[in-house]
């Protein structure tokens, strides 16, 4: 509440997606609040946090949306895709299934997000080396295939968390013209609905 009232030059909407329990909420809370707990509660639907940062001389307000990972909710969560400027796709390096889902998530982005949206691939829980099921090289290869940056992170030990958010914010910022009037308040996640300038918001 306090952070939102501070002035900023640019607002960027980020969306966190990935299978259930890969650590989306943990990453977000580590980044936004610098806290960690192994028992964050299940995200139902969508949640969001604000973090204002200094990025190359500009005050940038990040509005980060955290989504439910479970399959059922995709029908609901994909309506949040449109209007997001950056997408953080997370898998769990200790769970191959979540890595295998990355392709289907990428397809979802393709179908439902804005065409130029920036993406970053994250392998979380890098602190749990003994349980690793997906190698760093595999992760990197997949990221290269989609042409996106790749990080292995640990929300628990605070490894690479800030880096990944800063990277995606910087990429999005480079793409978006700095126009304070356009980014003042009431940012639209569902921009198709707000402006009316986009024809047909449904597929």
């Amino acid at each position: 509440m306090t952070s939102s009232s501070r002035p900023f030059d640019l607002q960027i909407k980020l969306l966190m997606i990935g299978d259930s329990a890969v650590g989306k909420t943990s990453l977000l809370l580590r980044y936004a609040n610098d806290t960690f707990s192994s028992t964050f509660i299940t995200t139902i639907g969508i949640d969001f946090k604000i973090k204002t940062i200094d990025l190359d001389g500009k005050r940038v307000k990040l509005q980060i949306w955290d989504t439910a990972g479970q399959e059922q909710f995709r029908t609901i969560t994909r309506s949040y895709f449109r209007g997001a400027q950056g997408i953080v796709l997370v898998y769990d390096i200790t769970d191959r299934g979540t890595f295998n889902s990355v392709r289907s998530w990428m397809a979802q982005i393709n179908d439902h997000a804005d065409a130029q949206v920036n993406r970053v691939l994250i392998g979380n829980k890098a602190d749990f080396e003994t349980a690793r099921q997906v190698s760093t090289e595999e992760g990197q290869r997949l990221a290269d295939e989609y042409g996106v940056k790749f990080f292995e992170t640990s929300a628990k030990n605070d490894v690479n968390v800030t880096e990944c958010f800063t990277t995606i914010a910087r990429e999005a910022k480079a793409r978006i013209p700095t126009d304070p009037n356009n980014n003042r308040q009431g940012q639209r996640l569902n921009s198709g609905r707000a402006s009316g300038s986009k024809p047909g918001c449904c597929k």
Partner: peptide
Amino acid sequence: LDLPPALYATSWFV
């Protein structure tokens, strides 16, 4: 604000 119920009410019902 363009804030539809899907953004805040999902967990209320679920």
